[in-house]
Design a protein around this nucleic acid. Sequence first.
DNA 1: AGCACACTGGTCGATGCAAG
DNA 2: CTTGCATCGACCAGTGTGCT
Length: 374
Amino acid sequence: MSLSEASVEDIPHPPESSQSLAVVTSESARQKWKIAALEEKLQILESGHAVKQRETNYYVSKGRAIRRTVTLFDNIEDLICENDRRCDLGNEDENTTDEQDRLQTGYIALNHALPWFHPRASDLEYDDYSYMLKKGADAARGDDTSKLKSLVADWINRELKPDSPIDPEDKHYRGFINDTCGRLLCLTELDWNSPTIRAGIRDRADGYVVTEMSWPAFLYEKYTANQDNLEQGLFKSTLLLQAFKAIFTSPSSAREVTADGDAADVIETNRRAKKDFNSCKKVKTHVAQIIKMHAVTARSIAYVACQLRFALSSVSSWRSVDGDFDYIPFWQNIVDFFERPPGRAAQQRVTRLLAWWTSCILYILNSPQLISVS
DNA sequence: AGCACACTGGTCGATGCAAG
DNA sequence: CTTGCATCGACCAGTGTGCT
């Protein structure tokens, strides 16, 4: 029987209480009830409310890309204001601050993430869409935080085999209390193996304060820095790659990550990524596809690094400060490292690093042309 | 009270795979 | 080849909790 064949009079109202539920027992009555529910759904879909609902869902859904690829802490309004300010001033304003430059780059990233945004910005009901985008942005960040909480524990237990395994469900025994997490969170210029330094860090004693001003060990290949060259192996840790894959391409793709860190050989990384991709179970469209991410960006790495640090810490609820460590300048430092390298040589190193990242991650998008390196 | 966040459970779509 | 089931994972809504 089609929907149109069931007249409205024939359709019993859905039961409103357990008492009336007992009345609807026959198969035909149940069928009619189902049809009634479907018709109601159809009516809602056809009404203006549904259009509004779809619109809301659209903005919330589009907003999910913002924290991941545009900005982890800035307000969308601030990005727009900075762009407006520059439009108003034209070329007259040449003395911009770092903060303003970062906001402007953020605005450009926002337009890459949401290409419809700029042309339509003036037509949109400002408060409404801004609120919905933020809602989606924060929801996605929350989803990722919760996802990494258990995944990071699994990866560490498997890769680093701590004496007492990390509880995937509990964060209280992470952070500097935990020997393995502490080693990863420790700044590279401090030797975690020294009991004095370990105690100093745990007591937040002078000289052992862990702030965002140095790179922590978890960012480095094999979790160790070369003190003579602090850029060597930076942003090439297995955990960082796994976290990136878990967020942008799927948790299952992150399971068997092996980072050998050979920056020169992007082609080899490419080949391995292809092999991994072919052996990995293909699942539903992943985040990178949904947000049309064709290359790994500075801001996506900064996002993942913050999420990873948060997962390693003992802080249970998302906030921007953890003891002496502030996530906002930490995120900014990473973005600046990639977006504002000092000089030509540094720029080339950064470009190579991003190409390496893209070759590690995005073969999954089946776009080999995107990961060829010039 | 209002807000932000974590957590949970559910829906839905994409994919793999076995059986017919 | 088609079908039905299982699995994975993104997303979302509802709820509880802690903070201001």
